[in-house]
């Protein structure tokens, strides 16, 4: 049996999608992580989802070349 985080190790240098708190999502190339799920992502794109007028979902995007994400914000990491 392998620890859950070991699957994350195999994703280093690959593109991952991370769901964060406050309706945020980040995609980027995984450069590093630790046991708290702190992450360093390259060419990261953050998407923020907001409920706008008439309950429509609005998104806004930000891109960054190098992003450190604090682990306590992470909800899950997609493994597709």
């Amino acid at each position: 049996m392998s620890a859950p985080l070991e699957i994350v190790r195999s994703r280093i240098d690959e593109k991952i999608v991370v769901k964060l708190r406050d309706n945020r999502e980040v995609t980027g190339t995984l450069h590093a992580y630790d046991e708290h799920c702190n992450l360093v992502l390259g060419d990261a794109e953050e998407t923020v989802y907001k409920v706008g007028s008439e309950h429509k979902i609005e998104t806004s995007k930000n891109t960054t070349e190098m992003l450190f994400v604090r682990g306590d914000q992470v909800i899950y990491i997609l493994l597709n």
């Binding site: 392998s2 620890a3 985080l5 070991e6 994350v8 190790r9 280093i12 240098d13 450069h31 590093a32 992580y33 630790d34 046991e35 360093v40 390259g42 953050e46 960054t64 070349e65 190098m66 992003l67 450190f68 994400v69 604090r70 914000q73």
Partner: peptide
């Protein structure tokens, strides 16, 4: 209270960082 730190790309040695992360994960295992 920090959510993100936006880093200067040129200050990061990506290969070194990835290698260190792999090594740390293996050590933990």
């Amino acid at each position: 209270s920090i959510r993100y730190v936006y880093l200067p790309k040129e200050a990061v040695d990506v290969d070194l960082l990835q290698e260190a992360s792999r090594r740390e994960a293996l050590n933990a295992k």
